[in-house]
């Protein structure tokens, strides 16, 4: 399977990861090799098969809706480099 320059641009845009020019050739080679292996799936006719998203077919267990206070905001925000008065800071998004 061929990966075009446009495909690479789309993947980079969607995944928010930059693809440098120096690595784009070897990356294209890797991705093409992986997708070629993946294409083996086409040998199988799966038109009458249902997709299986989860290996165990049990109903999700729901817990009682009881208020808990186990999230410590300050402690969690300590992990962020940039914060102020309980807010996370990012570069300006509106002019």
């Amino acid at each position: 399977m061929k990966i075009t320059e446009q495909d690479l641009k789309n993947i980079s845009l969607l995944s928010k990861i930059r693809i440098d020019e120096e690595t784009s050739d070897s990356l294209t080679k890797d991705l093409e090799s992986i997708l070629t292996m993946v294409n083996k799936m086409d040998e199988l006719d799966t038109s009458k098969v249902n997709p299986l998203t989860h290996p165990i077919e049990n109903t999700q267990t729901l817990r009682e809706d009881i208020e808990k206070k186990d999230i410590e905001r300050e402690k969690l925000q300590k992990l962020s480099k940039e914060k102020d008065s309980g807010f996370y800071l990012t570069p300006k998004v509106i002019e």
Binding site: N10, I17, M41, L52, T53
Partner: peptide, 26 residues
């Protein structure tokens, strides 16, 4: 991440992701 993003992107979801889930069932 790139492979996953590609397989889930518009136009490829059925051919890759859905197909793989069907094979998982088999």
């Amino acid at each position: 991440i790139f492979i996953g993003t590609f397989c889930l992107s518009a136009g490829y979801y059925d051919a890759f992701y859905n197909k793989a889930l069907k094979i998982r069932n088999l």
